[in-house]
Amino acid sequence: MMNKEPGPAIRATGLTVVRGPRTVLRDLGFTVPAGRVTGLLGPSGCGKSTLIRAVMGTQAKVTGDLHVLGRPAGHPALRARIGYVTQAPAVFDDLTVRQNLEYFAAVLDPGRRAAARRRENVTRAVADVDLTRHADALAGNLSGGQRSRVSLAVALLGTPELLVLDEPTVGLDPVLRRDLWDLFGTIAADRGAGLLVSSHVMDEAERCHDLLLMREGGILAQDTPDALKTRTGTDTVEAAFLSLIDQAAEAESESAAGAARSRRQESPR
């Protein structure tokens, strides 16, 4: 994987998603490179989770071209190659942390012969999210932050080539957030895995290699944090994001006003 030039982990063109009467994602085009951490940022309700579910192949009514690790999104062969964390922690509350991980590990890497490898993987994943002391506690008895870490640990089992994480650091304390972002960077650098991490916390954006900024179901910008700051003449990603949003809103109101003007001119009265 290291000697061959890897293709992008995710490539989308003309990606559109309809939910009920609403078009949630409209004609998106973007790439998520391998070996880098890509941050997916935008206000809540802008379509981040829908985009992530489309990538995972769990979203219905997806049109356009969406390739993940070289295959169409949702292809069965992808299921063992992607680590996925949903926004709400998806773990069994009536199992202990270790029992949860043992089950998901057995689904990923089944069979008696893999038992030793699974044990190793589980122990490592528990340590990665700093839950070793709570390994034998029921997930339902843990705090919210601890439960989301169990959910994250599930995604870290095995050696996924792509990690798709929907707001994995919500509700975590600053020390743990820093440690997890360090871990994300290590996974990208050492394993060459691609990471797509959604967040609405802008200071986390500085830790990403690339950023996808979303607004109202569209991609506002895709670039590195530095390039975005330079382009907008700002000091922080947050300021850059706000400036881009204002520009977009201005352009929209201008074109709306222009359209209204031209409608008035065309109308016979």
Binding site: G57, R79, Y84, T86, A88, F92
Partner: peptide
């Protein structure tokens, strides 16, 4: 409702 089914079906189960 807890999302574990969605997660399991996104895995090779």
């Amino acid at each position: 409702t807890s999302g574990t089914l969605e997660r399991l079906l996104a895995l090779p189960l």
